[in-house]
Design a protein around this nucleic acid. Structure first.
Lengths: 248, 248
DNA sequence: AGACGATAGTCGTCTGACGAGTGAGATTAT
DNA sequence: ATAATCTCACTCGTCAGACGACTATCGTCT
């Protein structure tokens, strides 16, 4: 095991995940090596292994049964629904979709009232607005707008590092510890300008995702609206039985 | 601490959550008692406390900082998006919406091809189809159809215990260990019969959720389609930064 | 053949310990 | 007085070893 920089338990979780995906550690009945065995294999204590396994269990990768063992979660390869925050580019790549981005339209201006409210900043805060259309082949399939306060992302920084995804840009920065995004899912009828960009008739129904991106310390660093042409992306989400609403 | 029947760590997690929600254990700066202190308070070992805290951390309730302490996650009380599997009735109650259900239309028949495929059963399997409309006041806002194999749920069992939610019925049964549901989110244009039931024009856009309900052992016990009139429910989901796609 | 009981293996929990990182107060230098 | 530095108590991360609870399997007995 390599160590430091990242908590050991997290590293172990990644290592175990690799072992699962490569099939190296999965026995015929779906069982994983015992915690003691994994502890030896990865040269970390059993407590750390248990921590790592707990992470994988919560993500739905494995199931543990007291007295029996640890098993890879049954069939439904359920990774990567909406509940995992990844960039559209990554998402598209995973389902084998080639995407291209239009020249982005970037402007610096003061935030609109809705924007400053959603960003929880003072009114009139200066922001960068980044808009672009995503294509597969020559067909436009999504229109994305990100609003970012200039205190978080300055124009030159953007110009230098923007590769199409604001999220990926943030993830690559060490000074921002991203936590999660609160994303609303709406149906929106295409307005004239959006219909034109996506080459649809006005009033065509669109998936609209409205998201606020949170850091670990509770700041909102991005407010985004995304419009998707139905049929190209299929959204799904894994809904878990909560710990709170179990039957008595 | 009461014990047995449920893993200690899970009980501890619930106990800690209570202490957080009541504010009893939250200091001014949002800090929780140290692991050692919680260990004494709840009379369980620190290892168990750590397990419990790990669960709460993964659910986004708390944040831990090495050397500093454990803190309640900053403001956005973010629980209960789509990623938590709760019945529509529970969901509605949470947002303060009074709902009523039409007389359900229940029939026993053989599964349609799509249904047996989605249920992963043999073709021609006998199923119960349960359809009903949900109202708020006199306004219809959702149309729900559940398909359940008769091997999972028999007609008399349904008649006796159905209160409007198939999910709640399943949750109350000890012999079914529900795990999660795989839910697709689509836009659907109202067909004539659905438009009539929801009192909309044909072709009106609807949210459509298509779900497969899984047990812990990987069986599918329910295939459901739900149609929602936009504007009454707002769907949202908490999207977490995954452990897999962290920047290097 | 089926019911039963012993047994080995695995996860859940406990105890005690040490190291690493943080934050605040005390100390020192300016 | 102010600012930089150091010290130290506190907290989370990790380790080691141990025992109990639970499961699955296999041999034994009826």
């Amino acid at each position: 095991m390599v160590r430091r920089t990242l908590p050991l338990a997290r590293q172990a979780a990644q290592e175990i995940l690799k072992g699962i995906e490569s099939g190296k550690w999965v026995r015929a009945n779906g069982a994983l090596p015992s915690e003691a065995a994994l502890s030896q294999q990865l040269a970390v204590s059993r407590a750390t292994i248990r921590d790592a396994l707990a992470q994988l269990e919560q993500r739905g990768v494995i199931t543990r049964r007291h007295g029996a063992g640890t098993f890879v979660a049954p069939l439904p390869r359920l990774d990567a629904g909406l509940e995992e925050l990844v960039s559209l580019e990554t998402l598209a790549r995973r389902i084998g979709l080639q995407t291209r981005m239009s020249q982005p339209h970037i402007e610096e201006r003061v935030a609109a009232p809705i924007e400053s409210e959603r960003l929880r900043t003072a009114p009139q805060t200066r922001v960068l607005a980044i808009a672009r259309v995503i294509f597969t082949g020559t067909r436009p399939i999504a229109y994305l707008v990100d609003i970012v306060p200039t205190t978080v992302l300055a124009r030159p920084d953007l110009d230098k590092n923007f590769r199409g995804s604001v999220l990926d840009l943030f993830l690559s920065r060490r000074d921002l510890a991203l936590s999660h995004s609160y994303t609303e899912i709406h149906i929106e009828l295409a307005s004239a300008p959006i219909a034109r960009k996506l080459r649809l008739k006005r009033g065509a129904p669109l998936h609209q995702l409205v998201a606020q991106l949170f850091t670990r310390d509770g700041r909102i660093v991005d407010y985004s609206q995304s419009f998707f042409v139905p049929g190209y992306f299929s959204f799904h989400v894994i809904r878990r039985v909560g710990a709170t609403n179990r039957a008595p």
